[in-house]
Design a protein around this nucleic acid. Structure first.
Length: 489
RNA sequence: GGCCCCAUGGUCAAGUGGUCUAAGACACCGCCCUUUCACGGCGGUAACCCGGGUUCGAAUCCCGGUGGGGUCACCA
């Protein structure tokens, strides 16, 4: 069997979109599974909208996701260049051939003329399709038009009365009638090829065996098939994956929230979580497993388990998966990833003791859905003061046993070192012994005194994180809030 | 509007004529664990778009309808 060669061919007109990332992922999984080659090609023939910034963003996002490529832009390879604007000479050659063979012809219509024609067709209730009028131009007319300064576009002559069948790997055979397809432009008047033309030549020349892409390209495929035929190329196998929709079941766009990989990266989603999530969107593994490492995905992936129906992007599930990965990852890794968010919030300088930072992160990691959320949970450690946050907390602090508890606690703080979880646990245990009170009577008010809240991380994390000075200070503040004189030791 | 794709719980989805009184996951609800919340464990609510066929038998096959999506550019 021939070696699998797949490609991801983004157009650099914006950041890498979630949908694009999934297409890239599916291609990559197939390549890695069959020991094939992953090619990345940049389709920048839209001179207006393409930008180097977008290209960089896309490539960076791919790298961040761990989707690497063997051939392509920034990497080179035997079928380069891999940026379409650098390949115009190649396209020109094939265009000339089609022209010489009478399979393509020049069209001098202006945008206005085409629009007028479209409207006329629409008005008569007909399909808005190019009627092929420039096909009938005489040599003299062409000369006159050119003398006017008109630059022609090159149109492909679609053979009438035929049926083109796309043998789609996920959808099965899909038939299209060529009569429904107007003669389409393959080279624009500025000499730049259109998508449909360039993609065919590139995929053929780069020996691509499988084209896995979004469903929006399905109706383009018959045009491309016609071009493969006219050019004498063997077409690759096609697999069209359905689109990813927003919560309201329409195509995912900016108004649905974050749609680019970069945005998720910034919010503190882990690449392995995003990969896992994307794989599960439109593809189903054989068993009941839901958590997959990259390697497992490569092992399990197969095109015939790709779903045909469009999938709604479910942020809740991504959050769950990301939270899962955050909980599973080595603490040191999560700490490193969390530092930038804590610094940005002004909570830390980054010079802190790693062991202490570990405690901070560990105390709240199970609450996290994404790393950016960490700042909401660790605020209690850094706030200058922590008065009771609500009535419930205030009532807890007003308990009659509270002064006794706080007094005993402050004595322990003076006497003992509390820098580890173990030491903290011992102190807490001694506190109940000293006060001869039930746990709830002791720990809940202590929690409120130290954090202002009735809920939060384990006390045995809070104690060593705050440290002696802050513990003393917050106990004092609690006494002050109660309006009670701290009993002498 | 023409053409094309799609249709199982709120969401992702398994299911390819009988083992479906339909799996699993997220979300939701309850219980347990826990001297808080969360995590974790256990359990629960909840679905085959509608109508016709075919068949002894249909979520599964066929036709129609409805709904959603895509596409009809000198965008990709």
């Amino acid at each position: 069997m021939e070696r699998v060669r797949v490609r991801f061919a983004p157009s650099p007109t914006g950041p890498l979109h979630i949908g694009g990332a999934r297409s890239a992922l599916f291609n990559w999984l197939l390549a890695r599974k069959y020991n094939g080659t992953m090619v990345v090609r940049i389709e920048d023939t839209d001179l207006e909208r393409s930008s180097p910034e977008s290209e960089k963003n896309i490539l960076d996002s791919l790298r961040w996701l761990g989707i690497d490529w063997d051939e392509g832009v920034e990497k080179g390879g035997p079928y380069g260049p891999y940026r379409q604007t650098e390949r115009v000479e190649i396209y020109r050659e094939y265009a000339q051939r089609l022209l010489a063979e009478g399979k393509a012809y020049y069209c001098y219509c202006t945008e206005e003329e085409l629009e007028a024609e479209r409207q006329a067709l629409l008005a008569r209730g007909e399909m808005p399709r190019y009627t092929g009028r420039c096909l009938r131009l005489t040599v003299a007319e062409k000369r006159r038009l050119e003398a006017e300064g008109r630059r022609p576009a090159l149109r492909f002559r679609v053979p009438p009365g035929r049926v083109v069948t796309v043998e789609d790997l996920v959808r099965g055979p899909v038939r299209f009638e060529t009569d429904g397809i107007g003669d389409f432009v393959i080279v624009k008047s500025d000499g730049i090829p259109t998508y449909n033309f360039a993609v065919v030549i590139d995929d053929a020349l780069m020996k691509i065996t499988h084209v896995i892409r979004g469903e929006e390209h399905l109706s383009n495929t018959p045009r491309q098939l016609l071009l493969y035929e006219a050019l004498g190329f063997t077409p690759p196998r096609f697999a069209h994956v359905s689109l990813i929709l927003g919560q309201d079941r329409t195509k995912m766009s900016k108004r649905h929230g974050a749609t680019s990989v970069e945005q998720y990266r910034r919010m503190g989603y882990l690449p392995e979580a995003l990969i896992n999530f994307l794989a599960l969107l439109g593809w189903a593994p054989e068993g009941e497993k839901e958590i997959f490492s990259r390697e497992e995905l490569i092992q399990e992936f197969s095109l015939d388990r790709v779903a045909k129906n469009p999938a709604v992007f479910d942020l809740e599930k991504l959050n769950w998966l990301n939270g899962y990965y955050i909980r599973q990852a080595p603490l040191a890794k999560i700490r490193e990833l969390a530092v930038p968010y804590l610094r940005e919030a002004g909570y830390i300088t980054g010079q802190e003791n790693p062991a202490w930072l570990d405690l901070v992160v560990q105390s709240v990691r199970e609450y996290l859905t994404c790393l950016a959320e960490i700042t909401q949970h660790v605020g209690i450690y850094f706030a200058p003061q922590v008065p009771p946050a609500d009535e419930e907390a205030a009532n807890v602090l007003r308990g009659e046993q509270v002064p006794q508890v706080l007094t005993a606690f402050s004595r322990l703080v003076e006497e003992r070192d509390i820098t580890t979880v173990e030491e903290a646990k011992a102190v807490l245990k001694d506190l109940t012994r000293m006060t001869r009170l039930g746990g709830k009577q002791v720990y809940l008010p202590l929690r409120v005194a130290l954090t202002g809240r009735t809920r939060g991380p384990e006390l045995y994390y809070i104690l060593p994180i705050l440290g002696r000075e802050k513990l003393k200070q917050r106990v004092e503040a609690a006494f002050a809030w109660l309006g009670v004189e701290k009993p002498a030791p």
